[in-house]
């Protein structure tokens, strides 16, 4: 089936709670990946992930969007902003927490476990760290696009900007990633030119 999520939504509305489980699993990766990158830790991310679903379920009757994931991203975007406002507004990446650890070090590897630091996931790990260092707006565009496959037009709506701004943010993000991954990029360019 092309859009099984639509069937799951319909089944859940019809009283089938198991269909909800499938729906949550279906969107877990893009949604949680996005939230994880936009927040400061796994605990906050799980809390927001749960809250996104609670709000989505309570307002399911108002859902009219074409893409359910875009709708979830929109809710997540608002919750991430709310949470950021609740936290210290003037917090800097150079500030230290109670344990004397700098936030910069913390967000640089917010959720990367030891498994990610080795083998074929090395590049993924590098990208992950580089993405975490991006400004929130650029990080958000990058994550929505790369993790959620949300179109730029939709991202622009969620961020309340134009499609050109969303594209420019993505380009800035890519430029910074390119800097970080300069070695890999040069090797790739060399292999293609041969």
């Amino acid at each position: 089936m092309e859009h099984p999520e639509k069937e799951w939504i319909a089944r859940y509305r019809g009283g089938d709670v198991e269909a909800l489980g499938r729906l949550v699993e279906h969107y877990r990766r893009p949604l949680f990946g996005f939230i994880l990158r936009m927040t400061e830790g796994r605990g906050d991310a799980e809390e927001i992930f749960q809250e996104v679903w609670v709000r989505a379920l309570r307002n399911l009757h108002t859902y009219r969007h074409k893409s359910f994931l875009s709708w979830l991203f929109r809710i997540a975007h608002n919750l991430v902003i709310d949470q950021a406002r609740k936290k210290k507004p003037a917090m800097s990446l150079q500030d230290e927490n109670e344990e004397g650890q700098r936030f910069e070090e913390k967000v640089a590897s917010p959720s990367l476990g030891p498994a990610l630091e080795s083998g074929g996931r090395e590049l993924g790990g590098k990208i992950g760290r580089a993405v975490s260092m991006l400004p929130p707006e650029q990080r958000e565009v990058f994550m929505m696009r790369m993790e959620g496959g949300v179109p730029f037009r939709e991202i622009a709506k969620i961020q309340g900007t134009s499609i050109n701004t969303a594209l420019a943010r993505m380009q800035y993000a890519l430029a910074k990633l390119r800097e970080t991954l300069k070695t890999e990029h040069d090797e790739l360019a060399a292999s293609l030119s041969q």
Binding site: Y12, V17, L20, G21, V24, R28, R29, F32, G33, L36, E46, F49, Q50, W53, V54, L57, R58, S111, L112, G113, A115, L116, G120, R121, L123, G124, G125, I127, G128, V131, M146, E147
Partner: peptide
């Protein structure tokens, strides 16, 4: 590379709370 970057498992507790709310 991005799509294989993280292990994005969620705790069973979070999932069960979502299901309860549902």
């Amino acid at each position: 590379a991005q799509s294989s970057a993280d292990e994005l498992e969620i705790s069973g507790f979070t999932v069960s709370r979502i299901m309860d709310e549902g």
